[in-house]
């Protein structure tokens, strides 16, 4: 057993446990995106960053790939972590502003601005689909191709792979290829209808995280109606 400290709490975990699992065991929330139960850790999205070690030599690591070490001091919500996490969400949002998952993350972590050019990419290279195809579907039909800015996910030579069984698992786990909540300003990255305005129907605490999951979004509907009635 390995004993480490997470946010000041001592916890003993088995050898081979990741920091993410240990923190989740203690109930500390760490947002994840490329991590998925049943798939191997990948550490691509960096959303699960935590701070390890003592100041001033502390460093940020991705908790989903970092294995617990004896005596390690971990902080899951320090100022530095929160700042880094918000920046990562903002960057992800610039890459794929149409993704509902990312929009929800932005709402949840209080990202209220979008300072980068929006790219509307249909892929954030989180590798979920690649791992799904390989580890759960045992197909290995899609994979990473190229590198740097030319990196993409797809089949070799862009020819439909004969090992693909069209199971749809890749699309099922994709956090980006869903329809986005456009509110009434399609160019705006953050829908904002649900999170940025005080919701008219749910002015209770504890519902902040839930609102974007509503279909249709009540807040957007009301604002839409209001604007429609204002038009001559």
């Amino acid at each position: 057993m390995i004993t480490l400290t997470i946010n000041g709490l001592d916890v003993s975990v088995e050898k081979g446990t990741t920091l993410l699992e240990a923190a989740q065991f203690l109930g500390f929330p760490i947002p994840t995106l490329c991590h998925m139960e049943g798939l191997s850790p990948y550490g691509a999205c960096r959303l699960c960053v935590v701070e390890i070690g003592e100041e001033p030599r502390s460093k940020l690591v991705s908790s989903c790939t970092y294995l617990a070490e004896e005596g390690l001091k971990v902080r899951t919500a320090s100022e530095r972590v929160v700042k880094a996490r918000k920046m990562i969400i903002e960057l992800l949002l610039a890459t794929a502003p149409q993704s509902k998952t990312i929009q929800d993350l932005a709402s949840k972590f209080d990202v209220r601005q979008q300072r980068f050019k929006q790219e509307y990419e249909d892929c954030i290279l989180c590798g979920r689909c690649v791992r799904m195809c390989e580890e759960q579907m045992m197909a290995k039909a899609i994979g990473f191709r190229g590198r740097g800015e030319n990196r993409s996910i797809g089949t070799p030579f862009d020819i439909p792979a004969d090992v693909c069984r069209l199971c749809g698992g890749c699309m099922y786990v994709c956090p980006v290829c869903e329809l986005r909540c456009t509110y009434n300003e399609p160019e705006k990255a953050i829908c904002g209808g649900c999170a940025n305005l005080s919701p008219p129907c749910l002015e209770k605490e504890g519902f902040d995280d839930m609102m974007c999951y509503m279909d249709p979004c009540v807040a957007c509907e009301i604002i839409n109606d209001k604007e429609r009635s204002l038009k001559p």
């Binding site: 290995k140 039909a141 994979g143 089949t155 070799p156």
Partner: peptide
């Protein structure tokens, strides 16, 4: 090895 892996290396 799967074609995906080989193609990944060849394009990387």
């Amino acid at each position: 090895s799967s074609l995906v892996d080989i193609y990944g290396i060849a394009t990387f």
